[in-house]
């Protein structure tokens, strides 16, 4: 059951996601792919709030994007972003936050940087791409392998984000734990 605290935390993380959208994208020089901070927010939402609240905060964030706030990285927003080919990644964020939270909750008592990074990679990278890439494949009718190859360039940045997120998740667990087990 959701109490007032849960609702406030969900709202705070949705706002935090918006804040991460204002962080300028860092471009990795050797690959030339922009790395945005928002997929980091997905991992943090799940890893700090847990599966259910983490996923709900992403739902809330996406609702605000859909109603027309330009909160996605680069000032994008509105309903149009969901009808594009990359809409699957946006919806995949919800599942990704849930998965990261679920694994972190499972390992809560012995959570360390390794298990937290594992959660972030499985939920925030593997699962996210498992939803996003087939979506691109179907929506743009291009072969699966082409879509997969096109996404590979983002993987190094995502792995760096997963390691960073896990360090934050473990540190927040030690200082201000919000998941009770």
């Amino acid at each position: 059951m959701m109490n007032t605290k849960d609702i406030v935390y969900i709202a705070l993380f949705a706002a935090l996601m918006a804040g991460l959208g204002f962080v300028p994208a860092i471009t990795i020089p050797s690959i030339g792919v922009p790395v945005t901070a928002q997929s980091l927010g997905i991992m943090l939402a799940g890893g700090i709030l847990g599966a259910k609240r983490g996923a709900l905060s992403i739902v809330l964030f996406l609702v605000l994007v859909a109603v027309g706030l330009p909160l996605l990285a680069g000032g994008r927003g509105g309903l149009g972003v969901f009808s594009g080919a990359s809409g699957g990644f946006l919806l995949g964020w919800i599942a990704a936050a849930y998965a990261v939270g679920y694994i972190v909750e499972k390992y809560w008592n012995k959570l360390n940087i390794i298990s937290a990074a594992g959660a972030c990679i499985l939920g925030g990278v593997v699962l996210l791409y498992a939803i996003g890439i087939p979506w691109v494949t179907v929506a743009a009718s291009i072969p699966f392998m082409k879509a997969l190859m096109g996404s590979l360039a983002f993987i190094p940045g995502d792995l760096i984000k997963a390691v960073f997120a896990s360090a934050v998740i473990v540190a927040v667990k030690n200082q201000y734990p919000l998941i009770s087990k």
């Binding site: 959701m2 609702i7 406030v8 969900i10 709202a11 705070l12 949705a14 706002a15 935090l16 918006a18 804040g19 204002f22 809330l60 964030f61 609702v63 605000l64 706030l69 909160l71």
Partner: peptide
């Protein structure tokens, strides 16, 4: 009611987090 509260809180929180 909870969804409404969460929506308005988020809109208010964005500048605060900034």
């Amino acid at each position: 009611a909870k969804v409404s509260l969460a929506l308005s809180l988020t809109i208010r929180f964005i500048p605060v987090i900034g």
